[in-house]
Design a protein around this nucleic acid. Sequence first.
DNA 1: ACCTGAACACCGTTCAAGT
DNA 2: ACCTGAACACCGTTCAAGT
Lengths: 249, 249
Amino acid sequence: MSESRAERSRLPRGSLTKRTIAETSLRLLDEHGVAAFSMARLGRALGADQTAVYRHFSDKDDLILAIADLLLEEVLVGFVPVSCWWQTVADFSRRMRSVYKLHPAAGSLAAIRITRGPNEMRLVDALLAATLSAGFEGREAALYYRVVADFAMYWAGSHATYLSLDSEHQMSDEASWTREYAIVDPVAYPNTAIVRQDLGEVGFDEIFETALELLLSGIADRAPNPCRCDEGHGPAASPDDACARRSRH
Amino acid sequence: MSESRAERSRLPRGSLTKRTIAETSLRLLDEHGVAAFSMARLGRALGADQTAVYRHFSDKDDLILAIADLLLEEVLVGFVPVSCWWQTVADFSRRMRSVYKLHPAAGSLAAIRITRGPNEMRLVDALLAATLSAGFEGREAALYYRVVADFAMYWAGSHATYLSLDSEHQMSDEASWTREYAIVDPVAYPNTAIVRQDLGEVGFDEIFETALELLLSGIADRAPNPCRCDEGHGPAASPDDACARRSRH
DNA sequence: ACCTGAACACCGTTCAAGT
DNA sequence: ACCTGAACACCGTTCAAGT
């Protein structure tokens, strides 16, 4: 935490770069949330005047795109496309969500932003490779690529936004809102009353994994090529579930 | 547009209510976007001092929740749960997204916010009725309810946010970003190069309908009860596709 | 009880001036 | 070429004063 300095001397010439500014922004967002992400606080954290950032970014939105690219870079760390397209898409979706959950404030700002940077291009190409290896062609390949890419983006972004709002309102418990339904009026809302106990016990991880499995098994049903792996597809997909479904073709 | 008044006299006593303030906010957001949604402009639009709003809402976030509830109210207009759970869930998801697309600025602010108002409770109960009628019970019913509710919320919110950003950056064409991939380097990104022509031709409506159909057909595969309707399930689901799948059980 | 308006502590961004 | 700092036009919110 070198956010404030008692005495600040003029910074040496090339000490501010796009990367250091973006990294410092990300640290600031991680530590103090969206509310603390102002140009004034960023300048202080950099040991520079707040307006020095404008030499490197045209405006705050431009800086946010650089932060979004940092997140994508983190998604790419350890992401290795494999021959099985199911595994590749599932791995990408999980990594995307993990990184956004690790950086909820940055994730909420980066959500659905298109950076057009090399990190994004690499991810797009890897996902398209998976879609093509599933046997889809042309327009259909583009469609299913968009479906899985948007799915991963929207869920990661939405969960990050939720966590970001949550920590700002200091409620921390991710399932707290569902507990409010436990005291619902059974006459006005009979169906809610039936599952009132269960609603609070379903967590975001399980919801995400279920949605992911539904999506991928649906695509597998429609894909010309089954994937080339013989085992299960991760935590939520048991072998006899996912692979048996694919072997119908 | 009565946003500005040359001369403003003191407002009569009960002329400001939660509802009129929320409705004026929604109109302001629709007409001028998120950037124009300030307490100062809201006050002017109401013909009142900007601080008068604080008599009715504790802060701006409280007001945003009221706007979110207005959107849910609009989702409920014409929403009639039917005996077929597939149709009910599909109808809700489409209505949710339609309303958010009609109000992109408000939708981007309302995204993933929980209002706990009666409109929300009614929607939750209707979706739970659908899930239960599919034959799911207890914890599993709660899980599949959350999957479809979150799906609808995240896609509606993300598309609204995208449209909201879009109109702020004045690019309007929803597929413009995909065109940039048309000039991609085929050596560095070989898979992208293969489908470069097709990427720009896939629209958000088609992506959404495909994702919805994948999700619902996946749930139908796992549901104890097929739904009780004999026809197709809307624009994207042809009879021989959706209903044939369900009749496997 | 409800609306007003001055005041406060912030914002993002611009631009002429420094080094 | 790069960083500084005063300045500008905004923000959301508080609170004592009006009616």
